[in-house]
Design a binder for these strands. Structure first.
Length: 502
RNA sequence: GGUCCAUUCGUCUAGUGGCUAGGACGUCAGGUUUUCAUCCUGGUAACAGGGGUUCGAUUCCCCUAUGGACUACCA
């Protein structure tokens, strides 16, 4: 089998959508699975849509995801340049080849003229299409005499180069995911290959580049499927062997219909981009929302592909080993933010307490608390399994760092009885005399005291929790008082008894 | 409108010419827990509709419906 070479070829028009990330991921997995090369090519032939910073953003995003580029602008390679605008002069030569062969022609109609033809047709209930029929009536090197169009060229009139789509011919082609497809050229139009601004369109540029870069498989979004017949025709005109094609299904919005957009994320509170986008209209990213790259990738990989087993958790290496294009689904996948959270939970559980302590310490610093790793490790051990993100740890542990300001009135009503103050003060004196304040030791002492006096365990412990935490939540009571320590425990009991006895 | 693509639990999906149509997320119920959460166990829930082909179709074919993409001198 020939060398596998695949590319991810985004345009630098803004932040990278997760649909794009998934396309990059599948290209990457396919390349690595087959010992091939993953290429990053920047398609910036539309000068009007260029956005500052987008190119860097794309590279940083892939890096964060753990998708390693083999050939590209930063990495170099023998098939450069990897940015289309850096080699714009070559595309005209290829357009000329087609003109010489009679498969393309110069067209001089202005965009305004074509636009008015389009709207006229629409009014008449018809669709204007620049095809074999129309081109005879328009101004181009097919309808004009040679001296006429040559003169226009010499005068420097603006022109585009269009592909001369045959009349009525069935084009047969195959897609790895969708199988055999037949399209009649009669429904296709004479697509612009080369624009009047001197740049090629996507159709010409990507095809020339794919050929020159010896791309073996084109794996791209489904939105390109309708133009595949044109691309097949172009390969035929050039006399080149086309690569194999795989068109990926779309990522759809969580509710309703249509493809996933930034709007959906904003509306429902989840990111649609891997990283924070700092330019113009900002957009939040998975990284800043506290997701780890591994679960993000894991989740994305399974959206449209599955290995046919019941395994859900995959490392990048496992994905590479298991990936296969024939197991990519045909239909669009609705994105589920809940499942993304679940994946992050799974990966967070696998982190060590030390790793999490280091990450959480950063978070605490921002809140003005400074603790050493050892102490935080213990704390994290108590709450780890109940959190999905590092930022969740704070919500689970805020009362470790500060005494409650208010007491949950519902709980007070239910758990703070006439005799509670007396019992808690009695409990306080027991604790005062306890030297070993480990959870195990205090548990032993308190339970013995409860049993000896025939007290109700639930009543005591819930009242204690109310004073220490402020409400009924959190890990085991004895773990909490052990961590905050004897002094703080006694202080909180005092404070609570005083406030609630008023 | 035209062209093309798609359709299995709410969601992601597995699957086969004959199965109790499987798993995961969510949800619901029980259990564990002095609280909350986690966790464990269990339940709920799907082959879009209609025609064929066939002894038999979720599976193969056709039609319809629905959804989607494309229909630019954007990619």
């Amino acid at each position: 089998m020939e060398q596998v070479r695949v590319r991810f070829a985004p345009s630098p028009t803004g932040p990278l959508h997760i649909g794009g990330v998934r396309t990059a991921l599948y290209n990457y997995l396919f390349a690595k699975k087959n010992g091939g090369t993953f290429i990053l090519r920047i398609e910036d032939t539309d000068q009007t849509r260029f956005v500052e910073g987008a190119e860097e953003y794309i590279m940083e995003s892939l890096k964060w995801c753990g998708i390693v580029v083999d050939e590209g602008i930063r990495e170099g390679g023998n098939y450069g340049p990897y940015r289309q605008s850096d080699k714009k002069t070559i595309y005209r030569q290829y357009a000329d080849i087609l003109i010489d062969k009679g498969d393309a022609y110069y067209a001089f109609d202005t965009p305004e003229k074509l636009e008015s033809l389009r709207s006229e047709s629409e009014k008449a209930g018809k669709t204007f299409i620049y095809n074999a029929e129309a081109r005879e009536k328009l101004i181009n090197s097919v309808s004009l005499k040679e001296v006429e169009w040559r003169e226009k060229l010499d005068k420097g009139e603006p022109f585009v180069i269009r592909f001369k789509m045959p009349h009525n011919e069935d084009i047969h082609f195959d897609d790895i995911i969708r199988g055999h497809i037949v399209v009649n050229t009669g429904t296709l139009d004479d697509k612009v290959l080369f624009k009047s601004d001197g740049m090629p369109t996507y159709h010409l540029a990507h095809l020339v580049d794919d050929h020159l870069m010896e791309i073996s498989h084109v794996i791209r979004g489904e939105e390109w499927l309708p133009s595949l017949p044109l691309h097949i025709m172009l390969y035929r005109s050039f006399g080149w062997n086309p690569p194999l094609f795989a068109h990926l299904p779309l990522l759809l919005k969580p509710d309703g219909k249509g493809k996933l957009s930034k709007r959906d994320g904003d509306k429902m509170g989840f990111p649609v981009f891997p990283l924070f986008w700092p330019y113009g209209e900002t957009a939040k990213g998975y990284r800043e929302d506290g997701y780890y790259p591994e679960p993000f990738i894991n989740m994305l990989a399974l959206l449209g592909w599955n290995p046919g087993t019941e395994q859900e958790i995959f490392s990048m290496d496992e994905l590479i080993n298991t990936f296969s294009i024939d197991r990519v689904g045909k239909s669009g996948s609705r994105f589920d933010p809940e499942k993304a959270k679940w994946f992050n939970h799974q990966y967070l559980q696998k982190r060590t307490n030390t790793q999490l302590a280091i990450e959480f310490r950063e978070f605490l610093r921002a809140h003005g608390y400074h603790f050493d790793i050892i102490r935080l490790e213990t704390l994290i051990g108590l709450v780890k399994e109940r959190v999905s993100f590092v930022k969740d740890i704070w919500e689970q542990t805020d009362f470790f760092f500060k005494a409650p300001e208010i007491y949950d009135q519902e709980v007070v009503k239910k758990r703070w009885k006439e005799d509670s103050a007396g019992l808690l003060l009695e409990l306080k004196s027991i604790l005062e005399n306890t030297v070993d304040f480990s959870a195990a030791a205090t548990e032993l002492v308190i339970k013995a005291w409860i049993e000896k006096n025939g007290y109700n365990t639930g009543a005591i412990m819930n009242a204690l929790r109310l004073l220490i935490v402020g409400t009924l939540r959190g890990p085991h009571m004895f773990d909490i008082i052990s961590w905050i320590g004897k002094d703080e425990t006694l202080k909180r009991i005092d404070k609570g008894v005083t406030l609630l006895s008023k």
